[in-house]
Amino acid sequence: MTTEPQSRVARPSSRARVRYNAGMKLVRRAHMYVGLFLVPFVLLYGLTAFLFNHPDWFSDRSVRLITTQDAAGTSLGSFPNAGELSAQVIQAINQGGTSRVSLSTAQVPAYSRDLALTAKGAEAEQVIFLELEARTGSVRSAPAPKPVSRPAWARASVPLDSPPAEVARTAVAAILKKWGRGPDEVKVRTPPELIFAVESDDGTTWRAAYNLQTEALTVRPWGPDLSTRRFLTAMHLACRYPSQINVQWCWAAIVDLMAVAMVFWGFSGLFMWWQMKSLRRLGAIVLAASLIGSILVAIGMHGLIGR
């Protein structure tokens, strides 16, 4: 007589447990298959991001370091550090102004980035990065491209009766005015280039690039002009959805998919960890350390970027 009520009481709990196990199984399967599908794209995206921190990987340039011994005897060897140069700037300000200022302790003087220079010669093209505080640097050299005679038809500038950038600027000003937000001034920020192919009288095909703002025309022989490194870094920097559905649109969709998948991996990983009771304490310690570390890094980067 008592077994039937007990089974009826236990049945809802058992059903809930079955649904819970089925849900967690679905989470584990989704976690795994999403990861398997995105493995190639994650590796590609990770590699392209890695190249920005390590400019010598897949580089088509030879690298030579500028040491303190190389800098000795040159003006770089006596280049002022950030504190010394700040004092010089403060002194110059006080000499030319009516009021005096002094260096504040709110910000430790520092250079925001390395000084980048380029050097071009008949035999090589060089990109130089100088670490001003340490008075060292690096020189990346590549053979100079073979000179290509510019065809006679390729003028340096090709002005049009209706400059495209001016047409766009005027149109934007009119639209904003129509919205009741008439601006004082509209400037072109980053004009695109019009890329097209040109075939000359002798049958040679050229790649032409026309700047919509400066109306400058650059040409080079038709053909690929990408090193492995340039291709990978350019692929990483490709962003936004183009107006037409093409390969770049697919790449943008994959980037969005990876962003969603990373959030899903994080939360699904938390659920999977919580199921393993024996690892809850150790996992909590790791999670707490990660949260503290990420907060400290975010605060530090905020101070660095915002200075």
Rank of each mutant, 00 (worst) to 15 (best):
141 S>R: 07
286 V>P: 10
225 D>T: 15
286 V>A: 11
37 F>E: 05
40 P>I: 00
239 C>E: 10
113 R>L: 05
57 W>K: 08
93 I>R: 10
286 V>D: 01
63 V>C: 04
88 Q>Y: 04
158 V>L: 13
273 W>C: 12
273 W>D: 04
82 A>T: 15
41 F>E: 01
222 W>P: 06
154 A>H: 00
164 P>C: 01
142 A>Y: 10
252 A>T: 06
187 K>A: 15
241 Y>I: 06
288 A>R: 02
4 E>K: 12
224 P>K: 01
7 S>R: 13
200 S>C: 02
299 I>P: 01
158 V>S: 12
239 C>W: 09
218 T>W: 01
231 F>H: 07
62 S>G: 09
234 A>K: 05
248 Q>L: 12
216 A>G: 06
12 P>I: 11
236 H>D: 13
297 V>P: 02
251 W>S: 00
299 I>M: 06
144 A>F: 15
134 A>V: 08
17 R>D: 04
282 L>G: 01
3 T>Q: 05
141 S>K: 07
293 G>T: 14
223 G>K: 06
74 T>E: 00
146 K>T: 13
111 Y>T: 03
21 N>C: 12
293 G>K: 02
230 R>M: 13
233 T>G: 11
127 V>Q: 11
31 H>I: 12
300 G>C: 06
44 L>T: 12
275 Q>T: 00
41 F>W: 03
83 G>M: 08
84 E>Y: 02
26 L>I: 14
225 D>N: 12
190 T>Q: 03
185 E>H: 08
53 N>H: 09
260 V>C: 00
255 V>T: 03
51 L>R: 09
156 A>G: 09
246 N>K: 02
75 S>Q: 05
204 T>H: 06
221 P>S: 08
35 G>Q: 07
303 G>Y: 04
296 L>Y: 11
274 W>H: 00
47 L>E: 09
172 V>R: 00
173 A>W: 01
229 R>M: 12
